[in-house]
Design a protein around this nucleic acid. Structure first.
Lengths: 234, 234
DNA sequence: TACATTATGTGTACAAAGTACACATTGCCT
DNA sequence: AGGCAATGTGTACTTTGTACACATAATGTA
């Protein structure tokens, strides 16, 4: 047993420091989007022969000269070409055998992006959006990571205005409710939903009406800038 | 930019795999205890000359042949000699310069232990309990880690019966309330506290009375085994 | 043994938030 | 003009949170 908790000392107990650098550090991003009243997730076909034909999350090894958070931004930017996107760390997965090529400890981040506001970079490996509901199996432990991040997202939308990342700037209350229903995978009562949102005081009434709908148009709203700003900090 | 998110491919883009194994992986444990109506945290003097005289959390590098979770259990066990202890991952800290000796990404866990139920292993480096309130500065980014874990704990005790880990098996409602007050660092109304706890339905009335108190003794309770078991799974 | 001390045990009124539920209105389409 | 499809709105009830006071029980001490 170590005589101290200290990194330096602990490393010296081993015959060689090298032993401790046999673990790779990676980041996996669960990038959620919203389209056609469904919650989507961005997946790519795995390169590994062990997972031939299977999809995986977007991830990469962390470079020695970048922060963990920076690494997740890099991955997101490489794929979606979006800056200034919502991204939050969720959990770190570190079982011994989670990666077939070697020991890899991976920190999962979740992100929310507006699918309509950007194009995916042209990419190999069939990079595309999948309905979250339709995802049954993924390479590595990525299904578990997805499940963990989805649960985290569901907890967050109750208290935090994160869904603004999934919507256009202007939206009707129906559109907002549909996002909540898609994320929570449950129908919501319209009157109660509106009451709840009103109480939170997140929105500004734009005094504009929906357009291009084949029924009575609803009023348009947007999130208050202050609300969005505070959320970014948290 | 990488042409794929895949670990194998990304690694191959670099001239050498070795570049990716320059990051060490460690675990830091925020071990909370409770004594004298105060929340405590277990700290040890840092070995590093850069942090001479400063205290740090208990941590160690993760060995290539142990899971991340196992590493945190190992550290806890080495120091407190307790098995079967509450331990939960909170957050991973990965800025480039957080460790003076090199690049170390560290996953923080928090733990709750009953200080009276065990002795600390004899140790160097002044391993001992500190009142959480009195901790102003720590080595590395450990103050930030402590703050993050404390916030996490405060969130948890509202919904989950985790405080059972801090108490003896039998306790009075006053003792339970004092734990909550210590963790939340705020006084609570006695009647409202009892109502809230009653609603949660976590406790069994043992039909026994306190002993060795110099005033009217209170009734003793314990947590229902089912409640504790479910909490361990979560 | 009585009395001061200290903590236990208990309930009500009010406020805030969540939930179940129905009908008139508006604009589009044919 | 009438049908369609959605918007917009309020009330009664339940649940949860909060503020607040007094009688009771055991101990310690004069």
């Amino acid at each position: 047993m170590g005589k101290s908790s200290n990194l330096k000392t602990a490393a010296l107990e081993k015959s060689s420091h090298l032993e401790y650098f046999k673990i790779a550090v990676s980041v996996d991003c669960v990038i959620f989007g919203y389209e056609d009243k469904e919650l989507k997730v961005l997946l790519i076909k795995s390169d590994l022969k062990e997972f031939a034909g299977m999809y995986s999350l977007l991830g990469d090894l962390v470079r020695p000269d970048e922060d963990l958070d920076e690494a997740s931004y890099r991955i997101l930017k490489e794929r979606t070409d979006l800056d200034d996107v919502f991204l939050q760390q969720v959990h770190t997965f570190g079982t011994i055998n989670r990666h077939p090529s070697g020991r890899v400890v991976s920190t999962a981040y979740y992100s929310l992006v507006n699918i309509n506001n950007h194009k995916l970079k042209i990419n190999h490996n069939d990079l595309r959006w999948h309905s979250v509901k339709s995802v049954y199996k993924l390479a590595f432990d990525h299904k578990e990571i997805l499940t963990t991040c989805l649960a985290h997202l569901r907890g967050q939308i109750e208290e935090h205005p994160v869904v603004h990342n999934l919507l256009n700037e202007k939206f009707s209350l129906r559109e907002l409710q549909e996002v909540y229903e898609a994320v929570l995978n449950t129908p919501l009562d319209r009157r109660n939903f509106r009451k709840k949102i009103t109480l939170k005081n997140w929105l500004v009434d734009l005094n504009e009406m929906e357009d291009n709908v084949s029924h009575r148009p609803g009023k348009l709203y947007r999130f208050k800038p202050k609300v969005i700003k505070n959320n970014k900090l948290a």
